[in-house]
Design a protein around this nucleic acid. Structure first.
Length: 263
DNA sequence: ATGGCATCTAACAGATGA
């Protein structure tokens, strides 16, 4: 079974890339972030024509997540509130969380807030959001021994995940508080950054800034991840970053990351 | 120090992203 995560930076602008990529890479499940569209306007038909089921949690202009699956998912859970209840509804105004169950596998698809600037209101929101993510995953884990948590985390965990870590303490996505929050909310629960089980090299990135020709210089960041529960990690066969679509005409600034499970 | 670029809404510029 193959599962991919991809921040597409607008599902409507990227529809042809998504279809082209899925035809070449018929993964079992594709997790999308930054769909940037309300649910009635999601380009559902083009995806369904490729024999994928479409599950969406969208909003106008910003954010938005989706699950595209070859097999039906049941149940599908929208937002933090589906697990945490009423007190989490405020954080669900921004559509950043969708989860689904595929057999005995539970997949959580996340779009972690960007944070804008260190110390800003958005930065504090990002840290609060990650604290709530801990509660969410902690509640899911006992019921879901085969848990996969993937998406755009907007945090580079280590210096080898950044093309140039100089000054990283003052940079969004690599400040100590962001790294500590991701560590506390995900890794400390026992979830494993599975890419690093297969590849320990620096220079392995999933996002390159549109500006300054970052992709051609490989000036990127590894901020799109797959985290696996311990039991599930035993089934992992590979985890690769597919840079191919980042080189296409008018690409997303992110590229897909695919994990293969022996399930 | 700033802006590089791309996407959204829809104001032909401003907000947001990372």
């Amino acid at each position: 079974m193959k599962i991919a995560t991809w921040n597409v930076n607008s599902v409507r602008s990227r529809l042809s890339h998504i279809c082209q990529w899925l035809e070449a890479n018929p993964v079992d499940l594709l997790c999308l972030q930054e769909t940037k569209v309300i649910d009635p306007d999601f380009p559902r038909a083009a995806i369904e024509a490729l024999n994928y089921q479409v599950y969406i949690f969208g909003q106008k202009s910003y954010n938005g997540v989706a699950l595209l699956s070859r097999s039906p998912l049941d149940p599908v859970m929208l937002g933090f509130a589906a697990v945490l209840g009423e007190e989490a509804t405020a954080l669900d105004e921004q559509k950043r969380v969708i989860s689904g169950r595929l057999g005995d596998l539970c997949v959580v698809n996340l779009y972690v807030p960007n944070g804008s600037e260190i110390g800003s209101e958005k930065y504090l929101y990002k840290l609060r959001w990650l604290a709530t993510l801990r509660d969410y995953l902690k509640a899911l884990l006992p019921q879901q021994p085969h848990l996969l948590v993937c998406g755009d985390f907007n945090v580079a965990l280590e210096d080898r995940d950044i093309h140039n870590p100089k000054g990283r303490e003052k940079h969004i996505m690599s400040s100590d508080a962001e790294r500590e929050a991701l560590q506390h909310s995900v890794l400390d629960l026992g979830l494993i950054d599975i890419f690093r089980q297969f590849n320990s090299e620096p220079g392995q990135f999933s996002w390159w800034d549109y500006r300054t020709a970052a992709f051609s210089r490989n000036s990127g960041w590894r901020i799109d991840h797959h985290y696996l529960s311990p039991a599930l990690s035993q089934t992992a066969q590979s985890c690769i970053i597919d840079k191919t679509p980042r080189a296409w005409e008018k690409p997303s600034d992110h590229t897909p990351v695919i994990v293969e499970l022996d399930l």
